[in-house]
Structure formats: structure tokens, C-alpha cells
Simulated assay, not measured.
Amino acid sequence: MNCEIKVGSVTNAQRGAKLLRRYGIKPAVSRIENPTPGDGCGFVITVDYNDCDAAKSLLYKNGIRILGVTER
């Protein structure tokens, strides 16, 4: 099971992925196929479900705005 964390831009997605790697979390950055108007540029950072809470906390504490989270 995975956790998809929506961020507003490719820059935030890349910064977030780099940050998560530094803390031992393996992220994958991808583009949302059909972003809605509230999705910004439409990028997500995907992490393992078990790392979801830690990833959200790290992103928030480091100023990366989270637009939504989907667990799949």
C-alpha cells in the first residue's frame, strides 16, 4: 500500500523527495494524469504507507505545502 502526497509544484516535489531521502524514506515523484484546479501543477510524492505520517510531518516542518494525501 502506498501514500500519495500532493504538492503544488515540481520544485516542491523535488525538494520534498530530497528531504525524505535524507531521512531514509524512499520517495517517487510523479505527475498527476488529470489534475483538478486545486492540485496546482499536479505533482505527487509517493511513499510507502508505513512512512506516510513521518513523510507528512517532515514535509510540513520544512515548509513544503501539502495539498492532499491519498492512500492506495
Results as ranks from 00 to 15, higher is better:
residue 14 Q to V: 14
residue 71 E to W: 02
residue 39 D to P: 05
residue 48 D to E: 11
residue 51 D to I: 03
residue 43 F to P: 01
residue 10 V to M: 12
residue 33 E to D: 15
residue 21 R to E: 08
residue 46 T to Y: 01
residue 53 D to K: 05
residue 71 E to P: 02
residue 57 S to V: 00
residue 55 A to F: 06
residue 41 C to K: 15
residue 1 M to I: 04
residue 44 V to C: 13
residue 6 K to W: 03
residue 26 K to M: 14
residue 3 C to Y: 00
residue 34 N to D: 07
residue 40 G to K: 01
residue 41 C to H: 15
residue 39 D to A: 10
residue 37 P to R: 10
residue 2 N to P: 14
residue 16 G to W: 07
residue 20 L to G: 04
residue 62 N to S: 12
residue 3 C to E: 02
residue 22 R to G: 13
residue 72 R to S: 04
residue 23 Y to S: 10
residue 8 G to P: 10
residue 49 Y to V: 15
residue 22 R to E: 14
residue 38 G to A: 15
residue 46 T to N: 01
residue 67 L to S: 13
residue 40 G to C: 02
residue 35 P to G: 12
residue 26 K to L: 11
residue 38 G to D: 14
residue 41 C to M: 14
residue 28 A to L: 07
residue 42 G to D: 05
residue 50 N to V: 09
residue 48 D to P: 02
residue 72 R to C: 01
residue 7 V to N: 07
residue 7 V to P: 05
residue 45 I to F: 09
residue 1 M to W: 05
residue 47 V to E: 02
residue 59 L to T: 06
residue 39 D to Y: 07
residue 8 G to N: 12
residue 31 R to I: 00
residue 45 I to G: 08
residue 17 A to Y: 00
residue 23 Y to W: 13
residue 42 G to Q: 05
residue 5 I to D: 00
residue 23 Y to F: 15
residue 13 A to S: 05
residue 6 K to E: 02
residue 52 C to W: 05
residue 66 I to T: 09
residue 72 R to F: 02
residue 1 M to T: 08
residue 28 A to E: 07
residue 51 D to C: 08
residue 18 K to A: 12
residue 54 A to M: 03
residue 39 D to W: 08
residue 1 M to R: 09
residue 35 P to K: 11
residue 19 L to H: 03
residue 66 I to M: 11
residue 53 D to L: 07
residue 29 V to T: 10
residue 44 V to W: 07
residue 9 S to P: 06
residue 55 A to L: 06
residue 52 C to F: 09
residue 69 V to H: 11
residue 66 I to S: 11
residue 19 L to S: 05
residue 59 L to I: 11
residue 18 K to M: 04
residue 19 L to K: 04
residue 34 N to A: 05
residue 52 C to T: 10
residue 69 V to W: 13
residue 43 F to N: 01
residue 43 F to M: 00
residue 34 N to V: 08
residue 56 K to I: 14
residue 60 Y to G: 07
residue 72 R to Y: 02
residue 47 V to R: 03
residue 63 G to L: 15
residue 3 C to Q: 01
residue 50 N to K: 11
residue 27 P to C: 03
residue 13 A to N: 06
residue 8 G to V: 10
residue 46 T to F: 00
residue 70 T to Q: 10
residue 43 F to G: 01
residue 63 G to T: 13
residue 36 T to Q: 13
residue 10 V to Q: 10
residue 71 E to V: 06
residue 20 L to R: 08
residue 21 R to H: 07
residue 12 N to R: 06
residue 49 Y to R: 15
residue 37 P to N: 08
residue 13 A to W: 03
residue 31 R to G: 00
residue 16 G to C: 13
residue 47 V to T: 06
residue 29 V to I: 11
residue 32 I to M: 09
residue 45 I to N: 10
residue 3 C to D: 01
residue 31 R to M: 00
residue 40 G to Q: 01
